[in-house]
Design a protein around this nucleic acid. Structure first.
Length: 1059
RNA sequence: GGGUGAUUAGCUCAGUGGUAGAGCGCUUCGUUCACAUCGAAGAUGUCAGCGGUUCAAAUCCGUUAUCACCCA
């Protein structure tokens, strides 16, 4: 059966992948023949995701490493799986719901997560199928999911990832590595959740800055003096206000102070005084102190900064330092608060605080709503407009003179208008929601990263030192990051690490395993029924309040030994375990355990004497923290979690620590650093010994591919058009470390052509019965016994390719491996060996040539397989009866022993000769089809032998017709090679002047080179200092160049003699 | 503002001390029995500028310029 003319990738790929999977070719340990293991963890794609170019690139590299190790007999596992991707997935489902006008809050949490699970089961296989199309050889039977085993996971989603996550949380909590605190966090008003610093994108926008006057309290005045750089007074006036510049007028309502730099002389007279926030009902204008802090930049704006600790990160720092209250102004949707007591009451309390008459606890401060009644409930931007209007109409906006010309009368018109500066500013946006982030003071859970960062730093410091010293040992327990630059990024981030906010106000995710319950108060303080400030406030928060009313013990059975209750948090792997802990506390404090501990849905916002209280009067309620964990908390456990931890599975023992992590630099912080920290914190081992960081795929112009730019190349379209092998090869060839990878279709088409080339070389062999199946007595493993130089040469070249490929892959130089193979297969095998072999297919060397051809092609298939698995597997099957599929074929280990230096030298001589003749012919415009005689004008023995041994190939490829020996005839072109020269008579055909020009040009270049070489050799310092082999090499080069130059000169002289 | 990196052929990029390479594109030629998804030949570079180290610098160091990315 003759082969088709080209490889039909579309037809073959699915068939081949199915065959691999059905034979269990990708299973952990398949084809293992040695004790070493090799394990890669896939960076888990989002479960709702689909394959983009970055995935294609990332997974191609992983697949190459995996297939390469598997063929080499390592016990190999490529562990696949998906990430539950909290925000992203919840977003998908909520968007679905919105289509039918439903919201998540219309249903229960369980109902909603049930829908998410449905979505997961519907779309979760999409990316898996896409990875299969790419040829990814993951062990799909082990496919993992970061939410597997979660409480309401449906059938088929068992597994223990959830258990692992919860166990880690509990352990870290117990070790004091996780804490809860009220902090200013990045709040996403769209998803109504906190997000981590890393999930915030800074986007440059056109911003506006308003300038407002904050009047001094009691109508006080001071002399305001401005000076230029030289100290000359440029402005001197009496002011009764301080001027403030802000980009966020609506947050003025929550100002706690105005700060100026301690060195700022302009405001020195009024530091310590009070000023008035120029907005809100006149009768309740709040006064705030003017303080000093290092933060304000005297050269920016007016030099005075309003401090709104609850809505700005810099202000928060100032507020903490200066003990300034942080008043929260907005709700979870970033609308102005509408809760709590009326403005008048709240403002009165705040005034008392500002005057130092009163202290508020953190919770009391938070409960205070300082939004004036007319602004309550408004969106933050609407509130901004109103605030600006109100201040402006009151004449408290800083104004400038504005000249306008009346269009009709042409009269100039001067007026004062409010000063509004237009500035470009960086504004934080949610990376998922794209809405403006609102810094928000909320209770969140944090990992105390400072406590776990050091081992993660140390492991990489050691790994990088070993890498640098060339003594890297994969089993030494440290980790290297390649390329080195990314290690710097890693260090830089970890050395400046901030606490990691891990709680998210979402429903889809691992719910935080912390319960709160009412327990007896040991301190004997009175309990409380009612808030002093706000009504609807969570119980736990209320407990911080100053207690005003006596607790009625009867409501809880009247058995408390001391005066009250408070709430206490319990971290436990399950509700049952939490109950155990709660009972212990009760017994310890009250001497008995409550009859019933009842888990309620959420924290009761009422008191036990309320008729609607969710539990019976002698039951004790407990409720679980409603928040879920940041997705990266669970993916941070990916290496151990997928291997079955905390169970001590065989796989965990065998494959952990894993070997290589292949990832893009964009998730070094998100993921790599956190895996390092968490694995070290939890199991005290590094998760992998090597992190290979690759480039980001961009479009032809270097732009990041994005849907909004419309420049996305869909890998599946490309696979459809060019085949998976071509796409893979392209990505591999362009994978030079750490750069951007710009992808163009031309390039892919080029590598598709490469697959065709390989296919056709095989077709040639097929037509000449030179395939594995034809070549008796040889196979892929046994190197053929060859005598002919051509065969010995290509065998040596094959060995060189194998050595280079192994070395390149060993160093993660994927592009070197691809380019080596490209050059070998196309440039050596197809361009030369196939051509050389043609005259050898008959005669004495026919059998060994067929055997060699078959072997060489087999080696091409094997060596190319990790990069181009499909076409090579197909050719492997087509060309012979094989014991194993190519995916499990044995990777060769032959080396320099196959390189025959003499064959090498001889074939290089032949190739040079043919190239020279072709070049001369083309430049002399000799018709391509014309066969020419050739005269050997001078030749040493080695040259003669080379000619004799290869004459049929030379005459064929250089289009010659018979060789004679003798003097160069008149009107001939000269071809100089090592050991002698040839002449090709072209009497009457060549243009002598043209030939002269050609030779002169060559000679000129040669002489330039010789000049450089001579210069170096004549420099005594070079001969003294340079390594001997370099000096020797230089001498040889010079000798060769001189020899060739002499021949060219002789040829030129002959031409001159003719005329 | 801080950090990291880049600047090499028309384009996209390799190249970590020994005198510059690849692919694509371009020009010319070619229906040679594996392949036109092909073959043969060719052109194009002060390796961003300046200074330094070295026998020797695209490569190491310093500096300037421009650009990119990350973090504030």
């Amino acid at each position: 059966m003759a082969m088709e003319k080209t490889f039909n990738a579309a037809e073959a790929e699915e068939r081949l992948y199915t065959a691999w999977e059905q034979s269990g070719a990708f299973k952990a340990g398949a084809n293992a023949s040695r004790p070493e293991t090799f394990c890669i963890m896939i960076p888990p794609p989002n479960v709702t995701g689909s394959l983009h170019m970055g995935h294609a690139f990332n997974n191609t590299l992983q697949d190459i490493l995996t297939r390469w190790h598997r063929m080499r007999g390592f016990d190999t596992l490529w562990q696949p799986g998906q990430d539950h991707a909290g925000i992203a997935t919840q977003m998908v489902v909520e968007r679905e719901l919105a289509k039918t006008n439903r919201r998540r809050t219309d249903m229960s949490r369980d109902e909603f997560t049930g829908l998410v699970w449905e979505q997961k089961q519907k779309s979760g296989n999409t990316i898996i199928d896409q990875l299969k199309r790419l040829g990814a050889s993951c062990d799909w039977s082990r496919n993992a999911f970061t939410m597997s085993g979660a409480p309401n996971a449906p059938k088929g989603e068992e597994g223990n990832f959830h258990d692992a996550v919860i166990k880690v949380f509990v352990d870290m909590y117990n070790k004091g590595l996780i804490y809860r605190g009220k902090r200013l966090v990045n709040w996403d008003p769209h998803f109504e959740t906190a997000i981590s610093d890393l999930e915030v994108e800074q986007i440059e926008v056109q911003g506006q800055m308003w300038h407002f006057k904050y009047p001094l309290a009691g109508g006080e005045t001071y002399e305001y003096v401005e000076k230029d750089e030289d100290g000359n007074v440029t402005l001197r006036e009496v002011r009764d206000y301080i001027s403030i510049a802000t980009t966020r007028p609506e947050t003025m309502l929550g100002d706690g102070a105005v700060a100026v730099h301690p060195s700022d002389e302009r405001y020195a007279p009024i530091v310590g005084k009070l000023c008035e926030i120029p907005v809100g009902p006149k009768e309740h204008r709040r006064l705030i102190p003017i303080i000093t802090d290092e933060y304000p930049d005297p050269t920016f704006g007016s030099g005075a900064v309003k401090i709104t600790g609850a809505h700005d990160f810099n202000d928060y720092g100032v507020a903490k330092r200066g003990n300034i209250p942080c008043y929260r102004l907005m709700d979870t949707k970033a609308a102005m608060r509408a809760d709590g007591a009326a403005y008048a009451e709240a403002a009165t309390i705040a005034m008392a605080v500002a005057k130092g008459e009163r202290q508020l606890s953190e919770a009391e401060t938070d409960a205070l709503n300082l939004v004036p009644d007319d602004l309550r409930g408004l969106d933050r931007y609407e509130a901004r407009k109103r605030v600006i209007d109100q201040i402006t109409s009151e004449g408290l906006a800083v104004t400038v003179l504005h000249k306008s010309i009346d269009k009709e009368t042409g009269a100039e018109h001067l007026e004062r208008i409010p000063l509004v500066e237009q500035n470009k500013m960086m504004q934080p946006h949610g990376d998922r929601s794209k809405v403006v982030i609102e810094p928000m003071l909320t209770d969140q859970w944090f990992v105390d990263t400072a406590k776990i960062v050091e081992p993660a730093l140390e492991a990489v410091r050691k790994g990088m030192a070993a890498q640098e010293a060339g003594s890297f040992d994969p089993d030494a327990g440290y980790t290297r990051i390649l390329p080195e630059r990314d290690a710097k990024t890693y260090f830089h981030w970890l050395e400046n690490i901030e606490p990691w906010c891990i709680s998210r106000q979402l429903w889809w995710g691992h719910q935080i395993p912390v319960w709160t319950a009412m327990v007896p108060n040991l301190k004997g303080e009175p309990g409380t029924w009612r808030m002093s400030v706000a009504d609807s406030i969570p119980l736990s928060r209320a407990m911080d309040f100053k207690r005003e009313n006596k607790f009625d013990e009867d409501a809880l059975g009247g058995k408390l030994t001391s005066g009250g209750i408070l709430t206490m948090e319990f971290c436990a792997a399950s509700a049952e375990e939490a109950k155990e802990q709660i009972r212990k506390v009760w017994i310890d404090r009250a001497g008995y355990a409550p009859a019933n501990l009842v888990e309620v849905d959420h924290e009761p916002h009422m008191w036990p004497d309320d008729t609607n209280f969710p539990v019976a009067s002698n039951d004790i309620p407990m409720w679980r923290d409603p928040d879920v964990l940041d997705t990266w908390f669970s993916s941070g456990l990916w290496p151990i979690g997928t291997l079955g931890w905390p169970e001590e599975t065989e796989e965990l023992k065998k494959y952990f620590p894993t070997d290589v992590l292949v990832t893009g630099f964009d998730i070094i912080f998100f993921w790599v650093a956190r895996m390092m920290m968490m694995q070290l914190a939890v199991v005290d081992q590094v998760p992998f010994h090597t992190v290979y960081v690759h480039a980001l795929v961009r479009d032809e112009k270097g732009k990041k591919m994005s849907k909004s730019l419309g420049n996305v190349l869909d890998p599946l379209d490309l696979i459809d058009e060019y085949g998976a092998d071509a796409v893979r090869f392209t990505l591999t060839a362009m994978a030079a470390m750490g750069r951007d990878l710009k992808l163009s279709k031309d390039r892919i088409a080029g590598y598709r052509n490469f697959t065709t080339k390989l296919w056709n070389a095989t077709r040639f062999a097929e037509m000449n019965s030179a395939l594995c199946r034809d070549a008796v007595g040889t196979d892929a493993i046994r190197v053929p016994d060859a005598n002919h130089t051509v065969n010995r040469w290509i065998i040596g070249e094959t060995a060189r390719a194998r050595i280079a490929v192994d070395e390149a892959l060993g160093q993660f130089r994927f592009n070197d491996a691809a380019n080596t193979l490209y050059a070998f297969v196309w440039g050596k095998v197809c361009d030369w060996y196939v051509e050389f072999s043609k005259p050898l297919m008959d005669g004495d060397h026919a059998a060994e040539t067929r055997a060699t051809m078959a072997w060489v092609l087999d080696q091409c298939y094997i060596l190319l397989h990790p990069i181009m698995p499909f076409i090579t597997e197909e050719l492997w099957a087509l060309t012979g009866e094989r014991a194993k599929m190519l995916v499990h074929a044995d990777w060769p280990s032959y080396g320099p022993e196959l390189i025959d230096e003499n064959a090498d030298r001889e074939m290089n001589w032949v190739i040079t000769l043919i190239s020279e003749i072709r070049s001369a012919r083309a430049e002399m415009h000799v018709p391509a089809g014309l066969k020419l005689p050739i005269v050997m004008t001078a030749m040493d023995d080695r040259g003669r032998a080379a000619w004799v041994g290869n004459e049929p190939m030379i005459t064929r490829l250089a289009r010659l017709d018979g060789m004679t020996e003798g003097a160069a005839p008149k009107g001939a072109i000269t071809v100089a090679v090592e050991g002698g020269s040839f002449a090709i008579p072209l009497e009457g055909v060549i243009d002598i002047a043209e030939e002269k020009a050609r030779l002169s040009k060559t000679l000129e270049k040669l002489e330039r080179d010789m000049g450089g070489l001579k210069g170096r050799l004549n420099n005594p310092k070079f001969v003294e200092s340079a390594p001997e082999e370099i000096v020797e090499e230089t001498r040889e080069k010079l000798a060769l160049a001189e020899e060739e130059a002499a021949k060219l000169k002789a040829a030129l002289k002959r031409l001159s003699d003719i005329g």
